[in-house]
Nucleic acid binder design. Structure first.
Lengths: 130, 130
DNA sequence: CGGTATCCTTGGAGATACTG
DNA sequence: CAGTATCTCCAAGGATACCG
């Protein structure tokens, strides 16, 4: 029984919306009014075409992203955030601030390892990925 | 290459903090000043002992949870959120509000399926898990 | 260009049994 | 009581090749 079915609304939203790559994709979408698939591939560094498609389809199904097809040769497909997508971005901004704050705190703790707080010491390996 | 290593701070935080069950666990911890392992097992409905341990250890390593052992027979271990854990809760509250808002919107759209907005129509299957 | 289809692999979650 | 240890299994993601 994965957590999304367990009754916590936050968990449900997080599981559906915040899957792998998703936050990254939304973050890139935020910086463009509208962006083509191939541009997304470049900006979301390291993602595979398959994964990008899967996540975009899910975001579309969740009403966060709008897909616009301009057929022709060559085809031209672009993606943009819906109003709901931008709503999500609004709650992600505080999340980003918090991540950056904690990261800064951890960096400081790493430079002054002798200083008191055990609670901070135990958190050293945390946010290296950033 | 999972998204956490891809360079987006939000993704890194989300991946580390918001793994399966985690939001649920934090949510339960928020409602108790301090709570025992066995109580957590009951309140986080459906979780296995192993998974609960794994997630708690990770939360501990991230400095979000404090573990207090009162040895004896029987042993007594309790968990509580640290200051950092409560910080996280503060950014999760808007997230929860948003989840509830979207859920309500979707419910309304489901009751009035003929109404306009295509953007809303496409989102129907979304938050059933809640 | 913007994807699908297919195969393959892996690590993460469940179940079960055991322990200080 | 509060966990570990071990096994197993399978969905989720990567790699690759192909298609409208």
């Amino acid at each position: 029984m994965p957590s999304a079915e367990s009754g916590c609304p936050v968990d449900a939203l997080v599981s559906l919306i915040m899957g792998p790559w998703t936050a990254y994709i939304v973050w890139v979408l935020l910086q463009h009014d509208s962006i083509r698939f191939s541009e997304l591939m470049k900006d979301v560094h390291g993602i595979s075409a398959r994964m990008l498609t899967v996540r975009l389809r899910r975001l579309e199904a969740a009403g966060l992203v709008r897909r616009e097809q301009h057929l022709g040769i060559p085809p031209h497909v672009c993606y943009e955030l819906t109003a709901r997508g931008r709503e999500l971005a609004q709650v992600m901004t505080p999340l980003e601030s918090l991540a950056n704050k904690w990261f800064a705190e951890d960096q400081a703790a790493r430079r002054a390892p002798a200083s008191g707080a055990d609670e901070v010491r135990s958190t050293l390996p945390r946010l290296q990925g950033i």
